[in-house]
Design a protein around this nucleic acid. Structure first.
Length: 104
DNA sequence: CAGTTGACAAGTA
DNA sequence: TTACTTGCCAACT
């Protein structure tokens, strides 16, 4: 049973991100489509405001090109490491979305 | 109430 | 292939 009667748009986005299964990734656009009322940008904005206490699997969210969208190289490397530990394979700097994109 | 601040995506050259 | 442009909108000061 899933109640999507959250307070804010951001919280709905967080709830969707928590649904992403281990070993899969989701794009910002996909999350926006699932949420239904927001744009891909809102997803990124929501994550940037997200706090670590929420325990979000933020590393499973990447952009539509299959690349990590963070700006700081250290964070990018961390995200890639986390995904690799879950079995997501990188081809160069890109993830093969054909194989690892989460299909709800 | 107004200004600021952001993890995007699609199109163009 | 990369670099640049435009459209998009909530939450926080």
């Amino acid at each position: 049973m899933i109640d999507i009667q959250k307070k804010t748009t951001y919280e709905r986005i967080y709830a969707i991100i928590r649904m992403i299964p281990k070993g899969k990734v989701a794009t910002y656009g996909l999350i926006a489509q699932i949420e239904g009322t927001c744009t891909p940008r809102m997803v990124g904005y929501a994550l940037s405001n997200a706090k670590q206490e929420l325990e979000l699997p933020w590393h499973r969210v990447i952009n539509s090109s299959g690349r990590i969208s963070l700006k700081e190289p250290e964070s990018v490397d961390l995200q890639r490491t986390l995904l690799l530990s879950e079995g997501v394979v990188f081809t160069g700097d890109k993830v093969n979305l054909k194989m690892f994109l989460w299909r709800p």
